[in-house]
Design a binder for these strands. Sequence first.
DNA 1: TAAACATATCTAATTTTTTCGATATATCGA
DNA 2: TCGATATATCGAAAAAATTAGATATGTTTA
Lengths: 100, 100
Amino acid sequence: MDIVEISKVLANKTRVDILKWLKNPEENFPPHQDIDHFDDGVCVGFIQDKAGLSQSTISTYLNSMQNADLLIPTRHGKWTYYRRNEEVINAYVNTLKDKL
Amino acid sequence: MDIVEISKVLANKTRVDILKWLKNPEENFPPHQDIDHFDDGVCVGFIQDKAGLSQSTISTYLNSMQNADLLIPTRHGKWTYYRRNEEVINAYVNTLKDKL
DNA sequence: TAAACATATCTAATTTTTTCGATATATCGA
DNA sequence: TCGATATATCGAAAAAATTAGATATGTTTA
């Protein structure tokens, strides 16, 4: 849990938005077709549509968020679903509260 | 209280260190000569010595932290003392806990 | 097996951040 | 008032982040 690395993720409005959207996928995204509900998160395409940036940019963002352990990817067939890593997100906020 | 702007401040180890050091000035800095105690914070020179970066870099850092409302400057004669803005720091952490 | 599709990776241009030395400004002390 | 001291600001070079288009990879389906 690296404060600086996670803060870098949060130093960008789109990435913060993605984290917020993934908190309530039902409210923020249309339902998936091939997967029940949002248990494994949201597919890249939906996130891209909502963010309005290019596919490669969103993929890069999601990758950086995964590297910071903020998101967990799950592959289902040709789709990758991303969901929040609540443990790390909580650990980050608690560390800030404590140490910062 | 801008999440992205504050996160940019925290996206750098030295700036995070400065915030931590200022939490306990007595432990982290030598006593000031011309001012009792650390009520108004710590002078730039001490922070610079501890951080080991150039004077202009530290001044730039402190300025960006002040712009993000994380630090409060007080001028005494030729010295500027910086202290933490605990309200904004707490508001930031609480906002993350709530909204993120 | 080939085409279509979803996502990832590569390459590169642009923008932003980092960092410093030089200089400016403000204050103090002789 | 002049020189020394503390901090701020300016200008510029180097490094990192942003972003997109092109291409690669892996998966599904006709």
